[in-house]
Design a protein around this nucleic acid. Structure first.
Lengths: 347, 347
DNA sequence: TTTTATTGGTAAATCGATAAATTGATTCTA
DNA sequence: TAGAATCAATTTATCGATTTACCAATAAAA
């Protein structure tokens, strides 16, 4: 029936009043502008009756606010990011914000492009898991006083709010634990990445080995590979290091892929090799034996991130300093990292 | 340095020409409007020099186009939807479209709200995995000639483009297969849902059992439960039906949850019970034994969906009829559904 | 010679909202 | 009683683009 959408002018004309008056009333500024109760009521009733909704584009153009938050994750298909995205979405939704999202693929050029797109769309705030190489673009956003919160990784040189987890201590503790269980040749299979979180994980591993005078066995596989392309380098590494007795995987994707490789090679866990992976996942819980995992507090990460951003967006809050949050991970001990079975044989 | 963003007026003033001319040139209508090569070049050079980008909000307000696609999935944290979202995002991005997304939680009210939000933002097109109860809202969109593509499920009563898979035949084949392997008491654990895809899966199962004169064992668990809340009803069902020899799970989430329950109850697969699940997943591949799965062609689903939408959005294509696509699933036979081990004992 | 087309653009209207400035009538204040 | 303040809105400008309508000067056609 109703072909064309109503505009504020139509409403004003139908009621024989000015559109400004309508605008004031709809924006709750009736009292402030001393508009009569009677008129306010008449307008509100009519607006509800015809189901009028202000055009948010026009509104955004005028006010500069879009009530949209831009969310950039590494890859929305990765369960870690998908879960965080979900919690962030909920938090945003409850506060009247919507999400535009995209996957960066850890590609700096693509990310730059996407940041430009977000700016172009006048998003109100930015939540970004940034790849290496976009430091300047983030700095630019901050310089223009745009609300930004990073998560999962950050840039040490840039004063920006972020939410990360204590990666270094997590792998440190995990490695220490393996040593305590009697493992000596512990490998770390990780991504070839200079992102802070990956470096920290590597550092934690190295630190623990150093303190125990053990040799590191590190394999870095290229970023952004198809899972299938990741398998080969891992298999090669394992073939060339037959005497390893434990492996720590740096991410859930590497862990899942690594398990497949181990499985296909007929290596038994934990009889032949102990396994720990970063990030928990159904696969790790259900695998036989279940896989010890360093679980990141996904819900907490998301909650902290969105809350920091929302408080920045809330103009009533004075623009406080940047918040830098480091959350603790949860090391979930499972069957894949029991006491080294070979020890009993030796003794 | 540059505090305020440049507008088209600034450009026009700096060059001492009219903003109309600038607009024509930037929109590639210079030739059509017979604007001199020399001026075109001068403008383009200057625009590039100062890095001017038209304000897309203003553009959208005027043209009514936003170059944004609204994507509504059941839950972005579900790997099935997360993967589809990822492929759709890629397809959209390559064609200059961005995605606004949200999770419906299969809640009709929330979905209605979100559809309204999408309209409000003037998204150019809609991709929706619709919950039951929003038939009218979809019909409304179609009535207003807005481009809509449904996926995963559809509404039989509504003439709308959609992309689904052949659910009925998939469970039918899977059930038949179990019967051939010598299983008799085959249960179907599914969601309590009236969505077309869930009904079709159930129907396929029923049809196969009927043709073989076997009794159905159906358990429907409530939708939208936390995974933890889903476990209990499944456990109860299994306890009350100790003589089952096979189970088909209706979705990947139920499958994963069901495996955990089976695991915790000490039931062995496939010795005590055979298992098949809808949707493939790393968990199923890596489980011991690996779990037979009905794999949906995620990439194909996404590709078809976005392509149908893009062709609708491409005004050069005549507005053809609605496309209704049904893709075939891939039954991946694995260890969890071998020949009934109890048969050899009986024989 | 008058009419019509072409050339190379421009001024003004428009999209749908918000915000600032203004108005005319009444009431209060000094 | 002149001037200020209050009231209850209204008029007009603005956000930054696109689009329609138009224009003056020259060339081509009738």
């Amino acid at each position: 029936m109703i072909k064309k959408k109503l505009s504020i002018v139509d409403i004003a004309n139908k009621l024989n009043i000015s559109k400004t008056t309508v605008s004031f009333i709809l924006n709750g500024r009736a009292r402030e502008k001393r508009i009569s109760e009677e008129l306010v009521e008449r307008v509100l009733k009519f607006v509800k009756e015809v189901g009028y909704k202000p055009n948010s584009l026009a509104k955004s153009l005028r006010t500069g606010k879009s009530h949209i938050i831009g969310l950039m994750v590494e890859n929305i298909a990765d369960p870690f990011f998908a879960n965080i995205a979900r919690y962030i979405e909920d938090g945003a939704y409850k506060n009247g914000y919507r999400i535009i999202y995209c996957s960066t693929d850890n590609d700096a050029d693509k990310t730059r492009d996407l940041i430009a797109m977000f700016r172009d769309r006048h998003v109100d705030g930015y939540i970004i898991a940034p790849p290496v190489g976009v430091e300047e673009d983030i700095a630019e956003l901050l310089k223009d006083d745009l609300p930004v919160v990073l998560f999962d990784r950050y840039f040490p040189g840039i004063d920006c709010s972020y939410v990360v987890t204590d990666n270094l201590n997590s792998t440190y503790t995990a490695t220490e634990y393996l040593v305590e269980q009697g493992y000596k040749k512990i490998a770390f299979i990780t991504l070839e990445s200079h992102q802070t979180q990956m470096q920290a994980r590597l550092d934690g591993y190295k630190k623990a080995l150093e303190q125990n005078n053990l040799d590191p066995y590190i394999k870095e596989v290229a970023l952004n590979q198809e899972t299938k392309l990741m398998s080969e380098p891992i298999a090669d590494f394992l073939k060339n290091n037959k005497d390893l007795d434990a492996i720590i995987f740096g991410t859930n994707r590497i862990g899942t892929c690594g398990l497949k490789v181990i499985h296909n090679m007929g290596i038994r866990v934990p009889d032949d090799i102990a396994v720990i992976s970063f990030d928990d996942h159904d696969v790790f819980e259900l695998y036989t034996p279940s896989i010890t995992a360093i679980a990141q507090p996904v819900e907490e990460i998301a909650a902290n991130t969105i809350n920091i951003l929302l408080s920045k967006l809330d103009s009533s809050t004075p623009n406080t300093d940047n918040k830098k949050v480091t959350l603790q991970n949860d090391l979930r001990y499972r069957g894949s990292s029991q006491v080294n079975p070979k020890l009993s044989t030796v003794k």
